[in-house]
Design a protein around this nucleic acid. Structure first.
Lengths: 312, 312
DNA sequence: CGCCATATACTCGCGGTGAGCAAAAGGGGT
DNA sequence: ACCCCTTTTGCTCACCGCGAGTATATGGCG
């Protein structure tokens, strides 16, 4: 029997709902996963076209900004059951992961598709509020390292420490560390089928949570040198909205005045004469993306680095 | 007749020879190209293993650092002749590009493999010396733009201008611009088969020059936040060697004292007691990669941005 | 009319970075 | 032996971006 190559396309489509980043998920047997499909060379001229095609079919959501993430070709990268979903047992699956951004989370007509918050899958990536599972996770990672200096260094590097600052864009490294230390359900599912004690975040089928981690890492990193946030914002927005969105993606709060100063000095936004009607305090001016906000521009947002000592 | 998916792996393996970055090329009919091969799912467990396997077979050069670049799945991305090399006419080729770095350019036993300098393919990317084809290229690009403001903006953005600084990591964008403006031979070969006037840089088969541009862009960008240069250096080196390598990759000269200051304050290098015997001036101390130079470290070299006003 | 909440404006100080000067350490020629 | 040339190495200084705090404007609401 001949083995054939099959190319699967996976997409992490994210949009903001309020100040919470969400990812589009579809229900499969085995649990939630990212929308995906098989690339048919007869039918589609490019990966992107195929992607748009079947995402719209599966979820009735049109795609906006799209970017390729990574191509996974490892045999055995998935649990055996994945092949039941994607093709014949004997086929070899190569999957190409994509990131996409939408300016709003559209209504979903299908029950099998749903917007789910990022941080349900990665609770440790959200540091906007004090608290959270991080201290405990670090403790368990150190227990796993078991005085192995190399492991301890790696933990300090990816999770932050006294000397090393928290690097929000290392979301993938953190997930891989958690996987190796068996603190996420997928590790047990893939390796021995046994449930561990206290695991963190919701699992996804196959390696989809890994792809989502890649997507989070990518967009977090990209925000520093490309104005991609605007792909997640509506036409007009207040600076607070924008900052809320940025903080949601980054996973930590930033200084308001400095953020605004940087935005204006880089011509990233343009003030309109209208104001938003809000409850609470003084009405905020509505802004539009400015001349420097074109997706092709190599200008970054004024983003600080995470610091332990900041107000909630 | 059934069409099948074929996965091709392409690799841009680079090493320094003196102060010149070189890429490993293989001779094919049609001209020079990157080493590549067909991924056989029966034989290889992962892409990387396959890569190492056939590069060693084709060129007898072992790979060091390896990183995936991008996966190209477009139909018609290649000239028809490519399918003769890679598979049957009817097969659909998807190619995965890789970047690899070697600490030295090993001797090549095969005549069909050869180290070729980066800047033979991209003369406009080397701004270490005054002069070069850039002013003329910009002029021809503007002629191509023909007062189309969008094109003019794009040119200013990718090629630099008064307001926009030269961004060395935009090598891919520049190549794509040159392709669209038909200033590289591939554009004519792929589109109409006619030779144009004055073209820039040597051509490669298929889209291999594009992959090399991607590789250059990637390593240039990566140097800013990861100490990847050390993958290109021998065991011990002088700071001038290191700086020469960095400048070779970046494509422009940098300030010596500031470079050294940054290196030491980041603990990227470690001084040894030995010195290099050189002709010319004062002997330089030999250095080793320092504690912060591990490939996993998120620390960048102290790299300035290109400025027009610099010494030769 | 006073209170509250948020938006917006301004200031201050540190540290990173760009740029240059000057001394140190060899080699080679006269 | 001495001078000159070259490259390395050490140091200074000014500027600017950025973190962080303080103060003022502008609305809603009781």
């Amino acid at each position: 029997m001949e083995r054939r190559l099959v190319i699967g396309l996976n997409i992490a489509l994210t949009a903001l709902i309020g100040d919470e980043p969400h990812v589009l998920c579809v229900k499969r047997r085995g649990g939630w996963g990212l929308p995906f499909g098989r690339f048919d060379p007869e039918e589609h001229r490019t990966f992107e076209l195929a992607l748009r095609d079947f995402v719209e079919r599966q979820t009735a959501v049109p795609l906006g900004y799209v970017e390729q993430l990574y191509t996974f070709g490892d045999r055995g990268r998935e649990a055996p059951r994945a092949s039941l979903v994607m093709g014949d047992e004997a086929d070899r699956i190569v999957s190409v992961g994509y990131l996409a951004l939408a300016p709003e989370a559209s209504e979903l007509s299908l029950e099998s598709a749903q917007w789910r918050p990022w941080y349900a899958f990665f609770p440790w990536e959200d540091r906007r509020e004090k608290g959270g599972p991080l201290p405990l996770i670090e403790e368990r990672l150190r227990a796993w390292a078991d005085s192995d200096q190399e492991r301890l260094d790696r933990i300090a590097l990816t999770m932050g420490s006294k000397k090393m600052r928290w690097a929000e864009e290392r979301a993938l490294d953190r997930f891989e560390l958690m996987y190796e230390a068996r603190l996420v359900a997928e590790a047990h599912r893939d390796l021995d089928g046994v449930e561990g004690p206290e695991l963190y975040g919701e699992a996804m089928i196959s390696d989809h949570r890994r792809i989502l981690a890649t997507a989070i890492a990518r967009i977090r990193g990209k925000m520093r040198y490309r104005p991609v946030v605007f792909q997640l914002m509506p036409e007009a927005f207040t600076l607070s909205d924008l900052q809320g969105g940025v903080e949601a993606i980054l996973g930590f709060p930033i200084h308001k005045q400095n953020f605004r100063r940087g935005l204006e000095s880089a011509a990233l936004v343009e003030k309109t004469s209208e104001t938003a009607q809000r409850t609470g305090g003084r009405p905020a001016a509505l802004y539009l993306p400015g001349p420097a906000s074109a997706a092709t521009t190599a200008v970054g947002l004024p983003l600080p680095r995470y610091k332990e000592t900041k107000k909630a």
